[in-house]
Design a protein around this nucleic acid. Structure first.
Lengths: 217, 217
DNA sequence: CGAAAATTTGACTTTAGTCAAGATGGGTGG
DNA sequence: CCACCCATCTTGACTAAAGTCAAATTTTCG
């Protein structure tokens, strides 16, 4: 998440970076689009993913307002990643070269980006652990808990309730499972009273038990 | 992989960074060791991994000579990662603050680190795709092909033959499988004439077919 | 050499995937 | 407002992939 500061604000006002709106379920950013610009999500939910030739897809992260798609992409073009809007999304794009200049003259911003990089690395590590070493129910519970934590940091939780625009397809692609299995696990969670989902909104009804299922710290 | 340049050489000679030797199967770096220094592998093979409380482990990458353990760790302390020697390993440790200074005054090195970051991000993406969306035989074939490619870049391939100090445990922990299943898949690969393993050395005997199994580009 | 670690193998179990068929639900055009 | 369409979700029966357990070998290391 990018915390704005003076320079960043100057930026977001520059003509280059006027915000664009994309309707739900449309592609925000193609794998080929990374040469010159870098997108930042301003509102809505999106997913950064890699699509295989056989049509399978791995979601690498869900993008919430304020999220840079990838910190590494600030330093040079990355390859193969696409970004898809989950809800309607507003985003801005920044010219990489301009950001580099900004980073060089602004120590404060460099520190912030350093922190982002470390966070992102840590998130990538957790993803690998989850996909490689955890059961389906753990993965799904953890995905819910990760999201709750990130939304809370943005003041987007209402008690234990959060907006939940994700389709089962998104959860499946983020956790390496099939939509059918996701459906079964979520149904089981609801039967067990851990969560309840209605109207694209999710409430954690038993935090303790959900933590236990997700082997949460 | 870090390509040495003048400044880097000055570095490796500094008293702080004299090289250390660790015998095979010993821990090189503990999860708590990241506060001030950063290790670089000079010779031998190591594995960077995360260990769960239940004893399970996910290997995030195999480290070959010249590898920095994590580029993000240059910018600040990272958490939870340990590094284990697979063969006997020589490594040097660098003080993060000194590296930062070096990076600031040396444009060339900054460019190099940028490239490293992008490579590392890409490798993390591939790991997630492999763990989330591929079958056991694909994962193992790909792991062999990744290693062959990296070794080739270092001039450490002898035709289609490479040193192969990995235990089944390492392959299992890198691919998210059990040692038993790894053993079965490797046996099948050998029966099918794709590879042959002997004396801690692996030869790819049918590149085309191994590429096919690994869905290699 | 002898103990400990690693590998191999087979029988059996568990987990998650595949397939198929309905149910639900939201949005659109008449 | 309703009828219809499409995407999504649900469920159950069955299959396939990988894990577990156990026991024998083989290799490695001290």
């Amino acid at each position: 998440m990018l915390t704005p500061n003076a320079d960043w604000h100057a930026w977001t006002l520059s003509p280059e970076s006027s915000s664009k709106t994309i309707p739900a379920r449309r592609t925000v950013w193609h794998p080929k689009d990374w040469t010159e610009f870098v997108p930042v999500i301003c509102s809505g939910w999106a997913a950064a993913s890699i699509v295989l030739s056989n049509g399978h897809r791995q979601i690498l992260s869900f993008l919430l307002p304020g999220d840079l798609v990838s910190t590494a992409s600030l330093f040079g073009p990355i390859s193969g990643r696409s970004v898809e809007a989950i809800t309607e999304v507003q985003y801005r794009k920044f010219r990489r070269d301009d950001i580099k200049v900004l980073l060089r003259k602004n120590q404060d911003m460099l520190d912030q980006v350093s922190k982002l990089m470390i966070d992102e690395r840590e998130q990538a590590d957790h993803l690998a652990v989850d996909l490689g070493r955890r059961m389906a129910d753990e993965r799904i519970a953890r995905q819910i808990l990760y999201l709750a934590k990130r939304l809370a940091k943005r003041g987007m939780m209402n008690g234990q309730t959060m907006a939940f625009p994700l389709r089962h397809r998104h959860i499946a692609d983020a956790t390496g499972l099939t939509i059918h299995h996701v459906s079964k696990v979520l149904a089981a969670f609801q039967r067990a009273g851990l969560i309840s989902i209605a109207n694209r909104s999710l409430t954690i009804t038993n935090v303790t038990e959900l933590h236990k299922v997700g082997v949460w710290p």
